[in-house]
């Protein structure tokens, strides 16, 4: 698809910084004179919120581990409206994209309220990480822990609200979060072609969101090997964060006692999904994302 690459090269690196570069100078000058703090966020940013439920903050750390890339994202593309840990504002607000970390404890009234409010106030809800997407390690909870022993039932957010985009993994990688953030920006603010590219890139993650809310290493069995699709590349074994998968005689061997149900294996599997038109443009897309974050 020459389309995708030409689009990206043309626009991503050049277009978004433009509105930033000009107003910034005057802003800085003004600031120096009047010492008022920056009031007006850069025009074409998307608004982002981050709802933190029953998760370990590992996803937050993964987001922060984009280092300079995160600062560029916040500078040019994203206006962070609320987020515990990285922002002062914690109250859920109206946003374009809400990222949710952690699963929902149904005995925790506040958590249930928050996830519903998140859905009500966001155009796009992203389940970030295994817990929000599939329950992950919180699937093993059965209550009795200090200091809320009655908190025993944890659900992936998709069991309570409609989710638009899923990012599996424990923790999902900084690069994956970055890629989705850039694509979300293009989807909401880009040109027609950029929207098409972002849609194509995000489509598998949307399909996952519309599908099953449970994950397990056995997905490699049920949706890949049982379907006659496995070719023994070993991606699942490499992606597993807890080494629950080893390759024996060229096929994955699962240790389900180790599996934490994060969904990384089947998401990473090239026979899990493989959108050839997007992935064959890997060179242009990678270069463009890197350029966008300069």
């Amino acid at each position: 698809m020459g389309l995708l690459s030409s689009v990206f090269k043309k626009n991503v690196s050049e277009e978004p910084p433009k509105p930033v570069a000009a107003p910034q100078k005057t802003d800085v000058a003004k600031k120096a004179e009047t010492t008022t703090k920056e009031v007006k966020p850069v025009v074409d940013k998307i608004t982002l919120g981050y709802t933190h439920l029953s998760g370990c903050t590992g996803c937050t750390v993964a987001l922060a581990d984009n280092y300079g890339g995160l600062l560029t994202l916040l500078d040019k593309y994203v206006d962070l409206k609320y987020m515990p840990t990285l922002a002062d504002v914690r109250h859920i607000q109206q946003v374009d994209v809400a990222i949710v970390e952690g699963s929902v404890c149904i005995q925790d009234k506040l958590a249930v309220e928050e996830i519903k409010e998140t859905r009500a106030k966001a155009a796009v809800v992203v389940a970030l990480g295994g817990c929000a997407a599939y329950g992950n390690i919180t699937r093993f909870a059965r209550g009795g822990q200090q200091n809320q022993p009655q908190h025993e039932s944890y659900l992936p957010i998709g069991d309570l609200i409609k989710v638009d985009v899923l990012i599996p993994g424990c923790a999902p990688t900084p690069e994956m979060i970055r890629n989705v953030a850039v694509m979300a920006y293009l989807l909401l603010k880009g040109t027609k072609e950029q929207k098409d590219l972002a849609t194509a890139y995000l489509k598998p993650l949307m399909t996952m969101a519309a599908g099953c809310n449970a994950a397990c290493a056995c997905d490699i069995m049920t949706s890949v090997i049982n379907q006659g699709l496995c070719m023994g590349c070993g991606s699942c074994a490499a992606a597993c964060p807890v080494r629950a998968i080893t390759m024996e005689f060229g096929k994955p061997n699962l240790n389900r006692d180790l599996c934490i149900k994060c969904g990384a294996c089947v998401a990473q599997c090239p026979r899990g999904f493989f959108n050839t038109d997007v992935i064959s443009e890997y060179e242009a897309i990678n270069e463009a994302i890197m350029a966008a974050l300069q």
Binding site: T173, E175, Y201, S235, Q268, F274, I279
Partner: peptide, 11 residues
């Protein structure tokens, strides 16, 4: 290439 474009578990 999928690992480079969709690095779910490959930080």
């Amino acid at each position: 290439r999928k690992a480079q474009l969709y690095p779910f578990g490959l930080r």
